[in-house]
């Protein structure tokens, strides 16, 4: 069986509908994703903003179904083109992972195995990505060298035979990007690709990812808690808090005028260059996923959240404009 190359609707390459994910520990159940719905169009660049622990990485991992062993998708649907990833056969899932979707993981040192060379890493990915094409090893090495050149690695022949620990942080990140690109022919999932890097290297890596995505016509989901980075790289943004999507908007609109109280606070508290520090702060504690608050998940920390309806009723999707939605009672009535 093959995944059909026809997209029935160009706006829907990937659709996640009402997804729920739980993590189980020995004593507790953590409700990490609650009713998440997103969609990614062909060639679209999506950003996901949220604090650490908002469930961003879990969302990406559940798309590829590489959740840790105690994580479980309890309900919902994930459509890739016309295939439901939660119900399809193992074969199709593997095909999608190997040939269509690539993921850049957060920590490049942890994503690379220290006992294998860069060549081993790249060839393994390439072998599966070109499974049916019947290509021999020397061609694969050439493809690997091309990938390294694409990611602007100097002296690719030497790098191919070195080990991850012999490379600098920026270089390692480039290798991880090259590996993701080897299998990403349609969609690139980038999970905080520059968190551990210096600002100058970060700027270079971002420029590189931007150019490669453009050149290969990929769609992208970029996760970050750095607001400036999302602004620069994406077209549309989802804001996550406590395992819920709380706002969706085109990037420039969100950065001009955030609507949800959480997004507003997030933008206000970010250290800025032009304005002095604001004394506004996000009060209260981060969310306890074992027992989520009733009603709006953000109400215990929300500056306007003391009304009855916020405490009791979970906010529904409110369409503010044609392309903007927000989940908040303020905009409901």
């Amino acid at each position: 069986m093959q995944v059909s190359d026809l997209v029935f609707d160009a706006n829907r390459l990937l659709t996640v509908k009402n997804l729920y994910v739980k993590y189980k520990s020995y004593w507790y159940i953590y409700h990490v994703l609650n009713d998440i719905s997103i969609n990614v169009g062909l060639g679209e660049k999506i950003g996901i903003i949220g604090e650490s622990g908002a469930g961003k990485t879990t969302l990406l991992k559940s798309i590829l179904q590489v959740l840790p062993i105690n994580g479980k998708i309890t309900s919902g649907e994930i459509f890739y083109r016309d295939v439901n990833l939660l119900k399809c056969s193992k074969q199709i899932l593997l095909e999608i992972r190997r040939k269509r979707v690539g993921m850049i993981f957060q920590d490049p040192l942890a994503a690379l195995n220290p006992v294998f060379t860069i060549k081993d890493h790249l060839l393994e990915v390439l072998r599966y990505a070109n499974e049916t094409a019947n290509i021999d090893k020397s061609d694969l090495i050439n493809i690997a060298l091309d990938l390294l050149r694409d990611t602007l690695i100097p002296d690719p022949e030497r790098i191919l035979n070195s080990y991850p620990f012999q490379l600098s942080g920026g270089m390692r990140q480039r290798i991880v990007i090259a590996m993701a690109l080897a299998s990403a022919r349609e969609l690139l999932l980038a999970d905080e690709p520059t968190t551990n890097l210096d600002v100058t290297i970060q700027a270079q890596i971002l420029k590189l990812i931007g150019e490669l995505v453009e050149k290969r016509g990929l769609s992208m989901i970029l996760i970050s808690h750095a607001l400036g980075l999302i602004r620069k790289m994406t077209e549309r943004v989802y804001v996550m808090y406590g395992g819920n999507i709380i706002e969706e908007a085109p990037t420039f609109k969100l950065f001009n005028e955030p609507l949800h109280p959480y997004t507003q606070l997030l933008f206000k508290t970010a250290p800025k260059i032009l304005e002095p520090l604001s004394s506004v702060e996000l009060r209260g504690n981060p969310l306890d996923y074992r027992n989520l608050p009733n009603g709006c998940v953000f109400h215990p920390r929300c500056p306007y959240g003391d009304s009855e309806v916020c405490r009791k009723v979970k906010p529904h999707q409110v369409k503010v404009e044609k392309d903007r939605t927000v989940y908040c009672h303020i905009y409901g009535s």
């Binding site: 700027a203 971002l206 607001l227 620069k232 970010a270 260059i273 032009l274």
Partner: peptide
């Protein structure tokens, strides 16, 4: 190389030098 969060911010930063190398 600072990622800015508004248009005004990016205006005041110098553009002359592209980040490159390590």
């Amino acid at each position: 190389s600072i990622p800015t969060i508004s248009e005004e911010e990016s205006k005041i930063l110098p553009k002359r030098v592209e980040p490159r190398g390590e």
